[in-house]
């Protein structure tokens, strides 16, 4: 079952994906997917390994060119999109993290402000205030001078989340952000994202294998397996007998029970 919640009168589509085919070196990982996301939605994206979740995120963020199809972000075709400060991105972890990298927490968070800068990119007082505000909101002001490599995995992801949120983005994209975290840290992390979604009305795209978390916090579920298997609200999902086949009765119960 697939459904694409169309933009209603209340909100414009924050993200629109039409007939997207994507992959690497000509091999198609995602085939002809279409969906749209409205402002304020919290979309949980899941699917088996190799189903194209991360590929889709990379294409949306412009990190990987699509093979076919169109993407529109905040009303602008992706190729022409330049306002990257309106999007926050949090990956699973840093690509090649060097624990001895000599960067302080506040320096890392301030890097998030670069997306709003024009050449020559210089930071000003407004940037300092934005960093202060974000650190305070996230409760990490006390570690501003700490070196990023000296932090625990949970705190480091919190700092990277602060970097993603420092521009108060309209769309927050996260690719398995809690994989390396313990259950307690993971829960507090998701609560923070939920608060942001509720208080600041940011739209959230969250890739995760943690279906229980999706059931608890997300408003919509996007289930991928190289194509869209299901996209819709949790009410639709939980009343759909077809979905039992994909998640199994136990899996579907877990998602719906906690919602």
């Amino acid at each position: 079952m697939t459904s694409s919640p169309a933009p209603s009168g209340r909100d414009q589509a924050v993200l629109s994906v039409e007939h997207l085919t994507a992959g690497y070196h000509g091999t198609e990982v995602l085939k002809d997917i279409s969906f749209s996301v409205r402002a304020g939605d919290y979309i949980g994206i899941c699917g088996p390994n190799g189903s194209g979740k991360s590929t889709m995120i990379k294409v949306i963020l412009g990190l990987l060119p699509p093979l076919k199809g169109d993407i529109s972000i905040l009303g602008t075709p992706q190729g022409a999109f330049k306002e990257w400060e309106r999007i926050g991105y949090l990956p699973q972890g840093l690509q090649f993290f060097n624990p001895h990298f000599p960067a302080k927490v506040e320096e890392v968070i301030r890097l998030g402000r670069l997306s709003a800068k024009k050449f020559p990119k210089r930071f000003n007082r407004e940037d300092t205030l934005a960093v202060e505000r974000t650190m305070e909101w996230m409760g990490i002001s006390g570690i501003r001078g700490a070196m990023i490599g000296e932090l625990s995995g949970g705190l480091r992801q919190r700092v990277l989340l602060a970097r993603a949120l420092v521009n108060e983005p309209e769309l927050l994209v996260m690719d398995e952000p809690t994989t390396a975290l313990d259950p307690e840290t993971r829960e507090s992390f998701y609560k923070l994202i939920f608060e942001m979604n509720q208080e600041k009305k940011s739209t959230v795209l969250l890739v995760t294998h943690d279906t229980a978390t999706i059931g608890k916090y997300a408003s919509h579920l996007l289930y991928l397996d190289k194509k869209i298997i299901f996209y819709g609200s949790f009410d639709e999902f939980c009343t759909s007998p077809e979905m039992t086949g994909f998640f199994g009765e136990h899996g579907q119960h877990l998602v719906c029970h906690r919602h």
Partner: peptide
């Protein structure tokens, strides 16, 4: 600095 810290994050910042 941003590209040295993490190239993918830097790219996602435009």
């Amino acid at each position: 600095f941003a590209s040295t810290f993490d190239e993918e994050l830097a790219k996602s910042s435009g």
